[in-house]
């Protein structure tokens, strides 16, 4: 049976991943900070005949990550999905909150690296051997992101965490090649989730946002077609290449 460990599984794209993979019969190790408040996730798990297990995890707590990896040491994990992340508030020019920036690096970048380090053995012994990290529409150093997006949009804190994640995925693809582990970074699209809606400008319609169902369908098709030669690549949710 195919299996995925996913962080941030209680809402948004994470929850949609669980819905779709559940329907496809996957084993899902669903991690979130507060399982007792994850009503929809609990409901899915209760109807999945044990295929979905829920694990309490704060991904900024490295000791907790190690503990969970130890607890799950007998599991093979086909896909490690480093889905969880934070979207920090904007910082107007001249008013950057550096303490928040440090926490954003911990929440998006260090957490992704620590999860990947701790779960490398579980992934390496699986069939598919895939790790994915979450890029963003705002993660490319070569383009501000398309549409009306411009450099200097008060999102430099978030942008730097996601650019750094892409470099981390590149580095990891090299480290893990000998084990046959594929590492890619995917921009899931600007999706109609709580986090996605929080980034709308006043007056923007939700219609400009991507349907989470489409985002996850696209990413599933993408990972289904991956080979080791693709490791280190950056993608959009629909399989197109993401500019570096």
């Amino acid at each position: 049976m195919d299996s995925m460990l996913i962080t941030g599984a209680n809402r948004g794209l994470g929850l949609e991943w669980v819905r779709q993979l559940d329907a496809a019969g996957w084993r899902i190790l669903a991690c979130c900070r507060k399982p007792d408040q994850a009503d929809e996730l609990n409901q899915l798990a209760n109807n999945a005949d044990g295929r979905i297990t829920i694990h309490k995890l704060d991904i900024t707590d490295h000791a907790a990550i190690d503990a969970l990896a130890g607890e799950l040491k007998d599991e093979a994990i086909d896909v490690l999905n480093n889905n969880a992340g934070v979207l920090p508030d904007r910082d107007p020019w001249g008013q950057t909150d550096y303490e928040k920036w440090r926490r954003a690096m911990e929440g998006n970048l260090f957490s992704t690296c620590k999860m990947s380090e701790a779960f490398t053995p579980h992934v390496a012994r699986s069939n598919r051997r895939i790790m994915i990290t979450m890029a963003s529409t705002l993660s490319s150093v070569s383009t501000p992101g398309g549409g009306p997006l411009v450099w200097g949009d008060e999102k430099h804190v978030y942008r730097t965490t996601k650019a750094a994640i892409n470099m981390l995925a590149k580095s990891m693809s090299g480290y893990l090649k000998d084990m046959g582990v594929i590492v890619i970074s995917i921009n899931p699209g600007w999706a109609n989730t709580e986090m996605g809606r929080a980034d709308l400008e006043p007056g923007d319609s939700e219609d400009i946002l991507l349907d989470p169902v489409e985002s996850i369908r696209g990413m599933r098709a993408l990972i289904d077609g991956l080979t080791l030669a693709d490791s280190g690549n950056l993608y959009k949710w629909n399989g197109e290449e993401l500019p570096p």
Binding site: L109, V141, P144, W151, D153, M167
Partner: peptide, 20 residues
């Protein structure tokens, strides 16, 4: 990876700074 990611992020800072 620690140094590389910091320099990628530094380049991203400078891109945004250009806009500001």
């Amino acid at each position: 990876h620690h140094y590389r990611s910091s320099k990628t992020a530094a380049n991203m800072v400078m891109k945004n700074l250009a806009g500001y």
